[in-house]
Amino acid sequence: METLDPSFEFDTAFAPGAAIPATKDTLLLIWDAPNLDMGLGAILGGRPNAAHRPRFDAIGRWLLARAGELSHQRGTRVEAEATVFTNVTSGGADNVRPWVEALRNVGFAVFAKPKKTEETDVDPDMLEHIRRRHAEGVLQGVVVASADGQNFRETLEELAAEGVAVTVLGFHEHASWATTSELLNFVDLEEIPGVFREPLPRISLDSLPESGAWLQPFRPLSALLSSRS
């Protein structure tokens, strides 16, 4: 993974929908929608229903409270900024549009990228946005929400070593890399008040029921056909 470069510059003047430069101290939330959907599906054993879909208004209130705490700690006003990163499959725009509009109405920015192949993901774009805010000199804190965000570990630990307040938001079943880190703070998504209408049916390998438990795959086996070199 590329490391942070303080001289890193972004040429976004002609990029459609480019991120707006930040001028105020910022607590940045990066939400990895494809990965969190996969992690949530693994916990539920299938697609989530309304009771088990995360409520972004609750996440927004939690982030605002964290920004207030960070403001008090740093002695400066820290603004909360939240962006959801997602892929849009071919022909899927109509299905995802209401969700995107709902997010924007709550106050979240959305970065949407076409899903061209199984390997097309938004990890590079999330890392780029973190580096952008770091290069702008405004990054007081960053929250990365991802079920398995190990791709972010090196960058996040570098930021934490520089004094940036770093939190990983996800599911403890999939985040041992974060829970064991001496530099990163981990918060289980279900710990945030009001995020889920009903408790998740959590299954841990450390506390399996006597009758056993089915653990569903993270992606269909057929995905191997499109990933052959």
Rank of each mutant, 00 (worst) to 15 (best):
G212S: 07
E154Q: 14
E173G: 10
G45H: 09
L205S: 07
P201E: 07
T117W: 03
A15E: 15
V166F: 09
V84F: 01
P98E: 01
H52L: 14
L28P: 06
W177P: 10
R153Y: 02
L156I: 01
A82E: 07
S7T: 15
R132G: 08
T155M: 04
H134C: 07
L127Q: 11
I20C: 00
A145N: 06
A50Y: 01
A175G: 02
F152C: 05
E81P: 00
E79Y: 11
T76F: 05
S226A: 08
A135G: 08
I130K: 06
D37H: 13
G212R: 00
T179E: 00
D125K: 09
H172L: 01
G163C: 05
D123C: 07
L29P: 06
G170F: 08
E2D: 15
L27F: 06
N87I: 14
L208Q: 02
I59P: 13
F186R: 03
S229M: 05
I130P: 05
D94C: 10
G170E: 01
P193A: 06
W62Y: 15
M1D: 13
R66I: 03
L208Y: 05
R77S: 03
L184K: 10
A33P: 04
R77H: 05
L169A: 05
T83Y: 08
D37K: 08
S7I: 11
L36A: 12
E69P: 06
R219G: 02
V122T: 15
A213Q: 04
W31C: 09
P48M: 13
A19W: 01
L28A: 09
R74L: 11
V142S: 09
R228W: 14
P220G: 07
N151H: 14
D25Y: 11
L63W: 03
G212E: 06
V110G: 08
L139S: 07
A67T: 11
